[in-house]
C-alpha cells in the first residue's frame, strides 16, 4: 500500500473503480433513461416514431447546450442566472447583423457568439471586481441584458433569416437524427477534453475547487473566473442560435420573460449529472445525460396528455428529488466508506 502502488500508471483501473462507476450518477441516469424510454415506448403511442425521435433529439440538443452553459459557471462555484437573457441577446445580435447590416450569415453567427462571450465577460469581470457572489451579479445583469435587448429591438423579431438557418433546423439524417444534436455532442466532447486534458480546463477546475490554493500555486484565479463566464455566454448564444434554427426566426421572447424559461433546464442538467454546486468538479457526460432525461420526460409526459403546467411541476419536483437522492447516496457511500 506504499510506494509500489503509486508506480502504476495514471488511470489504471481496478475493481474498485468499476464498482464506483455503478454507484455513479452517470450510471443512474443511463438506467433512468432506459426505464423511462421503455415506459413511454409502451404507453405513449408514437413516442418511438421517427418524427418524435427527431423532435426529441432537436429539443434535447438545445436543452443540453443550456445545461452546459450553466455548468461552465458552476465549475467556479458560481451560478449564471442570466443564461437565457444572454443567449437571446446574442441571437438577436446575430439576427440584426444579418438583417440590419447585411453581414453574411456565417460571420453573423460568429458575431452572435462573440457577443454572448462579451456579455459573459461583463458578468465575470464584475464578479471578480466586486467579490460578490455571481448569483447577485447575474440576477442584476439578467434584467439589464434583457431590458436593453427589448429596448433596442423594440421587442420585434428577425424573421427574414437566410434559408440556410431553418433548413439546418429541419434537416434530418436517416429520417430521425437532427444535426443540431451532433453540434451539441461535438461541443460536449470538446468540453470534456477541455476539462480533462488541457491546461485551461484544469486551471478552471482548480480555481473553482479552492481559490486560495490555486492562487498560491500560480493560477490566475480571476482570469479563470472571467473565462468561465465568457464560455458560458458563448454556449448560451449557441443554444439560442439553435433555437433560432428550430423556429426559423430570432424572437425576443423565445426564452420567456427575462429568459427565465431556461433556468429549469439549465440547472436540471448539471445537478442531475452530478456537477458539484460548490465548484471544482464537473461531469460533462452527466450534464448531457441529465438534460436528455429531462427533455425525454417532458416530451413523454406531453404525449401522455399531461398538461404543460403539470410537466413544469413535475420537473421542479424532479430537481428536488434528484438533489435529495444524491445527498442520500453520498451519505450512504460515506458511511460505508465507499467514496
Amino acid at each position: 500500500m506504499t510506494i509500489q502502488d503509486i508506480n502504476s500508471p495514471p488511470g489504471a483501473t481496478g475493481g474498485l473503480s468499476r464498482t464506483r462507476f455503478f454507484l455513479s450518477n452517470e450510471f443512474g441516469l443511463i438506467l433512468l433513461i432506459i426505464v423511462f424510454a421503455v415506459i413511454f415506448g409502451l404507453s405513449a403511442r408514437g413516442f418511438l416514431s421517427p418524427f418524435n425521435l427527431f423532435t426529441l433529439g432537436r429539443n434535447s440538443a438545445i436543452n443540453i447546450m443550456i445545461g452546459l452553459s450553466m455548468m461552465t459557471v458552476i465549475v467556479t462555484g458560481g451560478l449564471n442566472l442570466a443564461v437565457g437573457a444572454m443567449g437571446v441577446s446574442a441571437a438577436m445580435v446575430c439576427g440584426w447583423l444579418i438583417e440590419g447590416l447585411g453581414v453574411p450569415w456565417p460571420l453573423a453567427i460568429l458575431g452572435g457568439l462573440a457577443f454572448g462571450a462579451a456579455l459573459g465577460f461583463i458578468n465575470g469581470w464584475m464578479v471578480v471586481r466586486t467579490g460578490l457572489h455571481s448569483f447577485i451579479i447575474t440576477l442584476a445583469t439578467m434584467s439589464i441584458f434583457f431590458g436593453a435587448m427589448i429596448f433596442l429591438t423594440r421587442a420585434e423579431a428577425f424573421r427574414d433569416l437566410p434559408a440556410a438557418f431553418s433548413a439546418f433546423g429541419k434537416m434530418k439524417f436517416a429520417n430521425y437524427l437532427s444535426p443540431l444534436l451532433l453540434v451539441t455532442l461535438a461541443v460536449a466532447v470538446a468540453l470534456a477534453w477541455l476539462y480533462r486534458a488541457t491546461l485551461t480546463g484544469r486551471e478552471m477546475l482548480a480555481a473553482g475547487a479552492s481559490p486560495a490554493a490555486a492562487e498560491l500555486s500560480g493560477i490566475r484565479v480571476d482570469r479563470m473566473v472571467i473565462l468561465c463566464h465568457m464560455l458560458s455566454g458563448g454556449l448560451a448564444g449557441l443554444a439560442a442560435l439553435m433555437l433560432v434554427a428550430r423556429n426559423g426566426a430570432a424572437i425576443p421572447s423565445m426564452a420567456g420573460q427575462l429568459g427565465q424559461d431556461w433556468l429549469l433546464p439549465a440547472f436540471l442538467g448539471p445537478v442531475l449529472g452530478g456537477t458539484l454546486l460548490q465548484g471544482g468538479k464537473v461531469s460533462v457526460l452527466g450534464t448531457v445525460l441529465g438534460a436528455f432525461l429531462v427533455t425525454m420526460l417532458s416530451s413523454g409526459l406531453l404525449m401522455l396528455q399531461v398538461g404543460a403546467f403539470w410537466v413544469q411541476t413535475f420537473l421542479g419536483l424532479m430537481l428536488l428529488v434528484a438533489v435529495l437522492l444524491d445527498k442520500a447516496r453520498r451519505s450512504y457511500l460515506a458511511r460505508r466508506n465507499l467514496a
Binding site: A206, A209, S210, A213, G280
Partner: peptide, 12 residues
C-alpha cells in the same frame, strides 16, 4: 486551505 485542493486527486 492554501496548500492543497483537498477534493482533487494526488496527481492533480
Amino acid at each position: 486551505s492554501e496548500g492543497l485542493i483537498l477534493q482533487h486527486s494526488v496527481l492533480a
